[in-house]
């Protein structure tokens, strides 16, 4: 009995230890570390390497925010979250921001009371089939067996798509991406459907990737982006404009290679404002003038993050597609730094 009493005592002590609750920005600065929620592992987006260092596209956003706020891209505590724990972790304050390839939807934004600060990857649901089936369009999939992760938006999108095209399918419910890969390769289903980035990453791991094709149809919108809690707009601004800084830097041609040179002053005033040599944008955010410069030094601009983690030279080999700058026909469009 005394043992359980001891544990109970720890509980109460833990509750008592919770102190005053200031703004997230102050909390992060006081703590000296950013608690950033990531996935427990998704190829290209977040994964621990053999040394326990986290790497990936979402991880890059976390590091940029940490660099902007704390001046150290390594001052991040990566908190792995699952699909089930991610939202409570953010709502309860266990993490300061969530960068976990989370789709921006109405209900998550409004009902769950989160604030999506932007989109760092425009994804959409696609289909993968073996080449030997000879299918060239998702509309040819009448009567196909489809491997589908249960309890996700992809399941609902799939039902909508097949109903809209009045064709039939037989779902093979599976729990995780890993299971789906095995089932698909074993021939338990003709088609595997999930986010297109996930399909590309999955196909890259096959022994013969050329034997499988991704169909051209993308049947849903999955804008993935970092999010913060409702009600702390100062902190939301910091994360939003750090993300925008990465995107704007690409548009303006500021890279980690030329940033030192650019920071010495350039004749483009927007670059100067971004890097803090002109204006007082940092001060408005509650940070110092060089926040944008540090965010970019952490992992480079958006393009550099993209190319290093999921771009065409990586095993995942995603093309920019929708994620190109608006000037290149994509959807990336950051509001001006003014």
């Amino acid at each position: 009995m005394t043992k359980s009493v001891f544990l109970g005592a720890l509980t109460v002590a833990g509750i008592a230890a919770g102190g005053a609750y200031a703004g997230t920005l102050d909390d992060v600065q006081a703590r000296g570390k950013l608690n950033c929620g990531v996935t427990t592992g998704l190829v290209g987006f977040a994964a621990p390497d053999a040394n326990g260092e986290w790497e990936g596209f979402d991880v890059g956003v976390c590091r940029a925010v940490a660099a902007a706020v704390l001046g150290d891209a390594n001052a991040v505590e990566f908190v792995p979250t699952t699909g089930k724990t991610r939202f409570t972790a953010l709502a309860s304050g266990e993490i300061d921001m969530l960068a976990r390839n989370t789709t921006w939807t109405f209900s998550r934004d409004v009902d769950l009371k989160f604030e999506f600060v932007g989109v760092n990857y425009y994804d959409g649901q696609g289909f993968m089939v073996p080449t030997e089936l000879g299918v060239t369009s998702a509309k040819d999939l009448d009567g196909a067996t489809v491997c589908i992760q249960t309890g996700t938006t992809t399941e609902l999108n799939l039902a909508d798509f097949f109903r809209a095209n009045s064709i039939s399918y037989e779902p093979v419910p599976i729990e995780t991406n890993a299971e789906a890969q095995q089932q698909y390769l074993a021939g338990a289903c003709d088609v595997y459907t999930t986010d297109a980035s996930g399909l590309a990453a999955t196909r890259a791991t096959f022994e013969a990737p050329g034997d499988h094709v991704l169909l051209p149809e993308i049947i849903s919108k999955e804008p993935l982006g970092p999010l913060v809690r409702h009600g702390d707009n100062e902190w939301g601004d910091v994360v939003r404009w750090t993300l925008n800084a990465l995107i704007t830097a690409e548009e303006l041609g500021v890279t980690s290679a030329n940033i030192a040179e650019m920071a010495a002053g350039s004749n483009n005033p927007e670059i100067n404002r971004l890097l803090g040599t002109e204006g007082s944008l940092g001060e408005m955010l509650g940070l110092d003038a060089e926040w944008g410069k540090r965010a970019l030094e952490a992992g480079g601009n958006y393009a550099e993050l993209f190319e290093r983690n999921i771009g065409e030279n990586t095993p995942i080999a995603l093309s920019r597609g929708l994620n190109a700058q608006w000037t290149d026909g994509g959807l990336l469009y950051s509001p001006p730094f003014r």
């Binding site: 996935t39 427990t40 592992g41 190829v43 994964a47 621990p48 053999a50 890993a178 999955t202």
Partner: peptide, 26 residues
């Protein structure tokens, strides 16, 4: 506990698979 994102051995398998070098290994 891997369900609540504590990286026990089973939870780590997911993390290890998320490394592009080892994706596809079960």
């Amino acid at each position: 506990v891997s369900i609540i994102a504590i990286l026990d051995p089973l939870g780590l398998t997911n993390g290890i698979r998320a490394d592009a070098a080892w994706n596809g290994i079960y």
